[in-house]
């Protein structure tokens, strides 16, 4: 295996006296889907935000984060921008927060390609339309001219996912990206990500509170508790193989449609 796309080593994060992350280690290789599960406040989102240095200035970070071999925490602002532009895309749970409400969907979708990557707007538009179609949005030409408020939440989340893929990132950080979607829509979006992984080796760090989803969709899963990674398991083995008491507790709490025992 080549060097991982994302490699987080001994990452600690604190705000003053409050420890948010404690020596987190995780890696995502090309073509791999890695799950990050845990309850609210366990540090899942903080890990992702720290990895992209998207934290308030009051945060103090220790350890290292390497994306595509480059040390995110050590580089200057210019190189940080270049890493964010070329290598990574981040999808967050709330699509309305990610899209400018007064800009047309098409503009939001292509602006990174045009402004950061210097592509011609005709090419950017073609790529944007292709991706809208790929994420299952009907009449993409029409959607291109619409504004965010004209689309439903599920539609918008697909737009955000399409926007994240326009720049052909090598690594995708998906923070509860499909949690607000209906199960069938969620499947559509995840099928697209899986295609991208197989076609061009996209690596995905998939943050979710849905343990069934993590088990069914991820190659490997990290379990977080109070800012620490307590266990690492293969997705297929998540329910059967967990040995950490917290992981067991978490898994037992998950409601399941069980076969009748009576």
């Amino acid at each position: 295996m080549t060097a991982p796309l994302l490699e987080i080593s001994d990452l600690s994060l604190r705000y003053g006296d409050a420890k948010i992350l404690n020596r987190v280690n995780l890696a995502v290789a090309a073509g791999e889907t890695v799950g990050l599960v845990g309850e609210s406040g366990s540090g899942k989102s903080s890990t992702v935000r720290a990895a992209l240095r998207l934290l308030p200035t009051s945060a103090s970070l220790e350890g290292s984060v390497r994306i595509g071999g480059r040390d995110v925490l050590g580089v200057d602002e210019r190189e940080l921008r270049s890493i964010r532009a070329d290598e990574v895309a981040l999808i967050q749970q709330d699509p309305r927060g990610a899209l400018n409400p007064v800009r047309r969907i098409g503009d939001s979708l292509t602006e990174r390609l045009v402004r950061v990557h210097g592509e011609r707007s005709v090419d950017a538009k073609r790529r944007g339309l292709e991706l809208l179609e790929a994420v299952g949005i009907s009449r993409p030409e029409h959607r291109f001219r619409q504004y965010p408020h004209e689309l439903s939440g599920g539609m918008l989340q697909r737009v955000v996912i399409a926007a994240a893929l326009t720049t052909r990132p090598k690594l995708l950080l998906a923070d509860e990206a499909t949690s607000a979607l209906d199960v069938t829509t969620q499947a559509e979006v995840l099928a697209i990500l899986r295609d991208q992984q197989q076609e061009r080796g996209l690596g995905v760090l998939f943050i979710t509170h849905d343990l069934h989803l993590a088990a069914a969709y991820c190659d490997r899963v990290y379990v977080m508790l109070r800012g620490e990674v307590v266990e690492e398991l293969s997705g297929a083995n998540l329910f059967a193989g967990a040995s950490d008491p917290y992981t067991r507790l978490l898994l037992e709490a998950v409601p399941t449609i069980r076969e009748e025992t009576t």
Binding site: D182, A191, H212, L213, A215
Partner: peptide, 21 residues
């Protein structure tokens, strides 16, 4: 049946859900 098959669990495959839908 579609709703139940869409719920992630053992043997779940997103492409399969799309086909069912």
């Amino acid at each position: 049946r579609l709703l139940i098959a869409s719920v992630p669990g053992p043997g779940w495959d997103p492409h399969d859900v799309i086909a069912r839908r």
